[in-house]
Structure formats: C-alpha cells, structure tokens
C-alpha cells in the first residue's frame, strides 16, 4: 500500500445527483415528463383547439386528415385537442393529490414514529382502519358525496392514499430517532418539534422523495380511473374521461381510447422511471449487488 488513496468528500445530495444523471432510463423519464408537461402547459394557455367542439365527421381515423392528426371521436371531436386539453387537469389533480397524500402521511407517520407509545398506537390503528377500505371505492364514495370538482377529487385521492406513506415515514423516523445525532440534538436542548423538522425529516428525505414521486404516478392513475368511471369533474376534459366516453365504440374505432391511454401510460411510466432512478441514486449499494 504505497500510494495513498484520497477520497473527495461529496455531499450526499450531489452524489445522488451524479448517480441520477448517469442513469439513462431516469434521464429519459425526465425528458419524457418535461415534454408532456410542456405540451399540456402549451395546451392550457396557448392552444385554441376546442376539445368539446364537433369539428369533423365522427370516427375519422388518425393520419388521414392533417388538421386532426389523431383522428376524431364518436361525436367528431378532435382527439389531439382532447389530449392537449386533458393533460392539464390530469397532471394537476395527480400532483395535488400526491401533495395531500404526502402531507397527511408524513405528518401522521412522523408523529407516530417520534412519540411512540399511545400516540403511535392510536395513529397506527387509524392507519390500519384506512387500509381496510378499498381505496378506489372509498374515493368514489367521497367524490359522489361531495360532488366532483378538481379539488374534491384531489382531496379524495389524498384521503384514501396516505396510509402507505404514513407507514414508511413512521419506520424511517423510528430508525433515525435512535441515531446519535438525534441524541446530540436533544443534548443541546432542542425541542421535539424542532428535532422532527430540522433533524429527523431531512434525514428521512431520500425514501420519502422516492415515495412522493411514485405517489404522483399512483394518483394520476387514480384520477384516470375516476374520470373513466364518469366521476371526474364534469366541466373539464381529462384523459380518463376520453377513454370512458368512447368506451362503448371501441369495436368501431380503436384510436379514441388508445391515444389517451398511451398518454396516461407514458406520463406514469416516466414518473416511475424517475422514481426508480432516484431510488438507485439514493441507495447506490443496492445497485451493485
């Protein structure tokens, strides 16, 4: 051992970013998702095609008329316009629902994991209770009871999806709580709330970030399922709704359901590629196995 090896110190976040950048599927996911988001932003603010307007003969196949590259649906509405207009609500509800899921899940999970004892017991019983309710059915009930708007839909998805996040957070917090730097923070007299926010949660961030990413994907699928069933906001176009309303005519025309489905798939697929990439980047050891 004649030559000394030097290691350049690197912050964990930087190292994760370096790993992430080299992960081809993850980068592809980022590019794909950026493209989808930009397209929907453009659609929401600049595109003037009306997805509701009957513009052509019904069931025009894709690639025949240049103005309607993806064809028309059973009423003769432009499918491309529908895709562009439907992306915004789908993505917005997905992101909002994921945010609500994370807020509820992380708060309850952190409380349960940090305080333990009866708090933990109570919160975990509640979590178990919520896990017994079939998510989609419960969300359907909530949406129907409180009339479907983008807000209630996001709320409903959040209210039924948080238990997994809560369990994950609780497990992470319980693990980190025992580590020395938490004891150190206690020793200098930090208060509980401060310890949770400034010491424990930042250290629990990597798995929570991964989970948040994957939650976005699940929430988008969820929103699509609800709108497919006709339980979406009746005043907005969405990908799930396009599939649902054209479902009766699938044997006459495949394209009105295929393209919105592909849009949902590609969005969730790119989100999960990013999630997997983040997971690998935060746990480099897992990959070497």
């Amino acid at each position: 051992m004649t030559e000394a090896t030097t290691f350049k110190a690197e912050s964990p976040a930087r190292e994760a970013w370096r790993m992430f950048r080299r992960n081809i599927p993850a980068v592809a996911g980022v590019i794909m998702l950026t493209g989808i988001v930009l397209a929907t932003l453009w659609g929401t603010f600049f595109y003037d095609g009306n997805p509701y307007e009957i513009v052509w003969a019904p069931h025009e196949p894709p690639g025949v008329t240049p103005e309607f590259p993806l064809g028309t649906d059973y009423l003769g509405r432009d499918i491309f316009a529908g895709l562009i207009a439907g992306g915004g609500p789908t993505l917005a509800v997905g992101a909002a629902a994921a945010a609500i899921t994370m807020v509820i899940g992380v708060s309850l999970g952190a409380l349960a994991g940090f305080y333990g004892g009866w708090v933990d017991n109570l919160l975990m019983r509640i979590t178990e209770f919520f896990q017994v309710l079939p998510t989609l059915l419960f969300a359907m009930v909530l949406v129907t009871l409180f009339s479907p708007t983008l807000f209630t839909i996001a709320m409903a998805i959040g209210v039924v999806s948080w238990p997994q996040t809560a369990r994950l957070t609780r497990a992470e917090v319980m693990k980190i709580k025992e580590l020395e730097y938490v004891t150190a923070a206690r020793a200098i007299g930090a208060r509980n709330r401060r310890i949770i926010w400034t010491v424990i949660l930042p250290n629990a961030a990597p798995p929570l970030i991964v989970s948040a990413t994957l939650t976005i994907g699940v929430a988008i699928l969820f929103e699509a399922g609800l709108s497919f069933l006709g339980l979406g906001d009746p005043n907005t176009m969405s990908w799930g709704l396009m599939i649902g309303s054209n479902r009766a005519y699938i044997l006459d025309a495949w394209w009105p359901v295929t393209f919105p489905g592909l849009a949902i798939f590609l969005t969730v697929f790119s989100v999960s590629l990013i999630g997997d990439g983040l997971n690998d980047a935060f746990n480099p050891k897992l990959r070497e196995r």
């Binding site: 994907g217 699928l221 699509a224 399922g225 497919f228 799930g240 599939i243 479902r247 699938i250 359901v257 489905g261 949902i264 798939f265 969730v268 697929f269 989100v271 999960s272 590629l273 997997d276």
Partner: peptide, 13 residues
Amino acid sequence: TIGYAVPVFWTGI
C-alpha cells in the same frame, strides 16, 4: 415498471 404504469381499465379495453 410498465405494469405499474398502465391503467388497468385501458389494458382491459
């Protein structure tokens, strides 16, 4: 990853 990302009702259709 694909299985996770495909909406189940769309697979059915």
